[in-house]
């Protein structure tokens, strides 16, 4: 890791620190690094920075490192950390906020993080088209975009045989309204595909 001059990043990224606090609604500055969040995090082993470090990095204004980290995508948003935090920082909301900021900044997640982002986009694009999640469409689109063409391919036939695979999407009457919600949100705040 390259050397970071902490005082400089706090000054340079003061707006970022403020924005994370405001957007997430969380008292990030209260964190005193007890580490309870990391101890209970089920996916910390797969993260480049564990949750406790993410909060410290927000306090220090380490914007670029955070928005490029895989942590903000790997977080499964299980709320274990939020439930246990003695300072009542809902870390899950901080993770969501950083993810949203990363999406808007145009940062391109790589590796495991990219697979998560691709899955989000695939799911939401089926919702935008049909008003509901279309499971088959989600998996197909996810595999095409992630390059993992045969991801979950072993599920197809058994799911079909058990009658759990809806080959065609069911489009709701209000699908156009749902699509409009996506468009309006994009107009209001930008960044949502």
């Amino acid at each position: 890791m390259e050397l970071i001059k902490v005082n400089q990043s706090i000054e340079k990224n003061a707006d970022f620190i403020k924005e994370v606090g405001l957007e997430s609604g969380q008292p990030v500055q209260k964190c005193y690094q007890c580490g309870k969040c990391t101890a209970g995090c089920p996916v910390a082993f797969a993260m480049d920075y564990p949750p406790q470090q993410v909060i410290r990095m927000v306090q220090l204004g380490m914007k670029d490192e955070l928005l490029k980290s895989n942590t903000i995508w790997i977080c499964s948003t299980c709320h274990t950390c939020s439930t246990r935090c003695p300072c009542e920082v809902e870390i899950t909301h901080v993770m969501d906020t950083l993810r949203i900021m990363a999406g808007k900044s145009g940062a391109t997640p790589a590796g495991k993080a990219k697979y998560v982002e691709t899955m989000y986009n695939a799911l939401l694009s089926t919702v935008k088209s049909y008003g509901r999640t279309y499971e088959v469409g989600l998996v197909l689109q996810n595999n095409l975009k992630s390059g993992k063409l045969f991801n979950g391919a072993d599920m197809g036939m058994p799911m079909f045989q058990k009658g759990k695979l809806q080959l065609m999407p069911s489009k709701i009457q209000g699908a156009a309204e749902v699509a409009r919600i996506f468009d309006e949100v994009r107009k209001m705040e930008g960044g949502v595909k």
Partner: peptide, 15 residues
Amino acid sequence: SCCGATASHGKSHLL
């Protein structure tokens, strides 16, 4: 309609 599932909270607070 869909609740946004596991995806919308990582895209936009408003959505």
